Simulated scan of single mutants.
Amino acid sequence: MSAMDLQVLRSFQAVAQGLTVTEAAAEARVTQPALSRALRRLEEEVGAQLLQRVGRVLRPTPAGRVFKEYVDAVLDSYDQGRRAVAEAVDPDTGTVSLAFLHTLGTWLVPRLVTGFREEFPRVRFELYQHVENGLVQHLLDATADLVITSGDPGHPLITWRRLLVEPLWLAVPTGHRLAERRRVRLAEVAEEPFILLKPGYGLRSVTETLCRRAGFAPFVGFEGEEVHTLRGLVAAGLGVSLIPSSPDTAATPDFPIRYLEITDVRGARDIGVAWLSGRTLPPASRRFIDHALRVTAGVADGGW
């Protein structure tokens, strides 16, 4: 298969995923008419119409959707092969394609990446930050080799290994009735408004699960998209929230919050690394898994 044939397949893939022919042509550095002719020749070779016009854009036909699955697999195998050859020639290089839970981007992922690059400084990283529901799709779509997520995805095609246990603390404003306590039962705030991440975020489902185990369903006072936002709303006295990791328990002028240990339910979540079970990982990604497991092996429940 020539480089030109591969480019046509990449352009077909891009158009099938939503790019216009003009945008795909710009990516391929060819003219729009030239790409249109190439896509028509592809349809002739396959023997079926692969794209159809819907309004002002092209969308895959049923045959096109079937064909795209095989195109995705061909291009993924080719790209993996190129990476494997490059890393076989020079094993200290390569690229780690890593997607991770957005709440881990402030502490765990930077520490793992920094430590790994100290050992392998010529390895590159492609990083993708996402909510929980999108992480599995990164693996299934082969847009990432690895994901760091909370809890085992429970997918038959995915292998997951625990890295550490991340504690969850009940955050209350400093003027709260429980603020002078160090330990509380989650059930003690059953009647209070909770500040939660929006549906689809892993921390949202973990919070709802823990509240159910404590005997109540949380009353949603406010919703946000970042833990930083949750902390700000708690500091403003608008509710309570479960906050991940081990924060400094001393309040600051910007965040007058107290963090309390939960005693009636397990206030923690498992953090782990996952990959497609049947996919051969590039050497750099395999090394990163080993690195992540090694450096977190000594992390006790309750903090780094």
Results as ranks from 00 to 15, higher is better:
L164Y: 12
V240A: 02
V89S: 07
E192L: 03
A3L: 15
I271W: 00
E27F: 00
P173Y: 00
T209F: 08
G267Y: 07
M4W: 13
F288D: 13
A16T: 05
T174P: 01
A274D: 01
Q7I: 12
A88G: 09
A73D: 15
T103Y: 08
G215E: 11
V240E: 03
T174A: 12
A34K: 07
A268M: 13
L281W: 12
L140T: 10
L233H: 10
S150I: 05
Y201T: 01
R37F: 12
G221I: 11
G18D: 03
R286T: 09
D301V: 15
V96S: 03
H176I: 08
A84R: 14
T229R: 15
A274F: 01
F125A: 04
R162N: 08
A99W: 00
W275N: 02
A214Y: 06
G115Q: 05
S11G: 14
R83H: 06
A84D: 11
V123G: 02
L146D: 01
S241P: 13
S277V: 07
R122V: 05
R161F: 07
A187Q: 04
R204K: 05
Y201M: 03
T20S: 14
H176L: 08
D79A: 15
T229L: 14
R53A: 06
H176S: 08
A284R: 04
T93H: 04
P256H: 03
Q13L: 10
R213P: 06
I158R: 01
G202H: 02
G81F: 11
F100T: 00
D254S: 09
E192H: 04
L230H: 12
A179K: 10
V172K: 00
E188S: 10
V74A: 15
R83W: 00
V165A: 14
E225S: 15
V273E: 02
V147T: 10
S36D: 10
T207W: 06
T22Y: 02
C211H: 05
S285H: 03
